[in-house]
């Protein structure tokens, strides 16, 4: 194997040498931070759009990229999830730890990410599960995006990837207008694994047309619940 230590020194030295040729001096950490802060950011951070407009936009953009959206009151979440499952003739669903128990639908077998030995399910076992139900960390209206940081109620990343059907519950208070606001919402957890999801899996590789459904979940259902 190549000697990565000397490669490291060589690459860094080369960068410094070339930057010096361009009259760019090395700066202290404080100078670097100050220069970074001075970068003008005149783009929109999201206007204070009224709530109705925001939710309407969020719904419209989710639907535009093939997600199914159901609105529910805070005590109607379980029923809304049950409806989505029934529409797919699905009677079992994987639910990660931490998902609010009051949202669990009646008459549906709840599967957990745990085998007989108390270990996480293996890939093969996970592949046998058709549906997963999770919470989310934030929703971005402009782009129709939901963000997972894979904390309680959202499960490890594979749970929302291998099953073909992903149903998630988004609280209206979690919906922001713009990407900058969405990034801001998760910034405190920036070193968690994070997934942005915008519609079901798709590809544009064939004749540049968005075609729904390749390797990720081919169905994305969103229950939008009026709750802070």
């Amino acid at each position: 194997m190549a000697d990565s230590t000397s490669a490291r020194a060589a690459v860094l030295a080369q960068i410094r040498k070339r930057l010096t040729e361009s009259s760019i001096p090395a700066s202290t950490d404080a100078e670097l931070a100050a220069e970074y802060q001075r970068i003008p950011r005149s783009y929109s951070r999201g206007a204070a759009a009224d709530a109705d407009h925001l939710l309407h936009l969020f719904t419209e953009r989710l639907v535009d990229y093939d997600a199914e959206v159901v609105r529910a009151t805070s005590d109607g979440v379980a029923q809304a999830i049950a409806g989505l499952l029934a529409a797919a003739s699905e009677r079992r669903a994987m639910v990660p730890e931490g998902f609010p128990s009051e949202w669990l639908p009646q008459g549906v077998e709840i599967l957990r990410d745990q085998d007989a030995n108390g270990e996480q399910l293996g890939h093969e076992a996970l592949d046998g599960i058709k549906t997963v139900i999770t919470t989310v960390s934030a929703g971005i209206a402009q782009t129709g995006t939901i963000i997972l940081e894979h904390s309680a109620g959202q499960g490890r990343r594979a749970l929302t990837l291998v099953p073909d059907r992903h149903i998630c519950v988004v609280r209206t208070s979690q919906v922001v207008e713009s990407v900058p606001e969405g990034v801001e919402r998760i910034r405190a957890q920036a070193t968690q694994p994070i997934t942005f999801i915008s519609g079901p899996s798709a590809t544009s590789d064939i004749e540049m047309t968005r075609i729904r459904g390749v390797h990720g979940p081919r169905f994305l259902g969103v229950v939008l619940v009026e709750q802070a």
Partner: peptide
């Protein structure tokens, strides 16, 4: 697209 289907960030 306004947003592509998936962005993964891990640390």
């Amino acid at each position: 697209e306004r947003m592509n289907p998936y962005n993964s960030i891990w640390t």
